[in-house]
Design a protein around this nucleic acid. Structure first.
Lengths: 124, 124
DNA sequence: GTGTACTCGCAAATGATTTGCGTATTTTTT
DNA sequence: AAAAAATACGCAAATCATTTGCGAGTACAC
């Protein structure tokens, strides 16, 4: 079943993956269709086994739920740098307490210019 | 010039607006095309006069740069509730210090079920 | 064996956003 | 004020990630 291949790809990846990245990767060894990848990914999200996160580039990034990372994205070279220790949960709990809104997830994304691009001076 | 109408709509709105909301609104008094709205909005973003934020629903929300709000979005009724006092800037400064990444903006979005939907029990 | 439920591929559909192009309208330059 | 250069805009077609309808293949149950 291709669901397992997809799930394992996500499991073994240190970073979140796009449907297309997954598709390209598994295409090398398996005969698969892109829509199958999307379909499977959505099933996994529905079951709560993985997490889907739509970034500002409008592309959805998938990852195994518990690895929860946020990224600093360079607007110049478009590299996504993961940040450690998400400190938003504290804020989420506070909001939950104050508003009664049952927060189940959140997304956080930083934008700017990465050190490398700053040094290179390639940013316009 | 339609740029002014669009800018004023954003200026007078307490919440961020989508291109379509702006289009519907100004259509009542002005003859305008949706692509003009998008084009104008992108110009304003390029000039740094307004801010564009792509939410998980893949729709871009625009607002005047300085009103910076984050939202709690109900996955049931899809209403976006603004949250006050963004406390991310502190975290952003810390990241900047630790990594040298020049953070210029960020996006934060909470998801869950709003109090109203919890009470109504309309969430599946 | 036959029914029921998935799993998939393929092609076509979506939906927000963008773009090419030709036509106004405005602004700048003589 | 006329000519030239720059913008603003409408319209239709294009994009692009993602979704969906449909039909075929496969698996497990009764």
């Amino acid at each position: 079943m291709k669901k397992d291949i997809i799930f394992n790809l996500l499991k073994n990846s240190p970073k979140s993956l796009t449907a297309e990245e997954i598709y390209n990767d598994m295409s090398q060894t398996t005969d698969v269709n892109l829509s199958t990848v999307y379909r499977t990914l959505n099933n996994l999200v529905a079951k709560g086994e993985i997490t889907k996160n739509v970034r500002q580039d409008k592309i959805a990034y998938f990852e195994i739920g518990d690895q929860h990372k946020h990224y600093m994205i360079c607007d110049n070279c478009h590299t996504a740098f993961p940040t450690e220790n998400c400190e938003i949960d504290k804020l989420a709990r506070k909001l939950k307490r104050e508003t009664g809104f049952n927060i189940t997830s959140h997304t956080l994304e930083f934008h700017g210019i990465c050190p490398e691009c700053i040094n290179k001076g390639t940013n316009k």
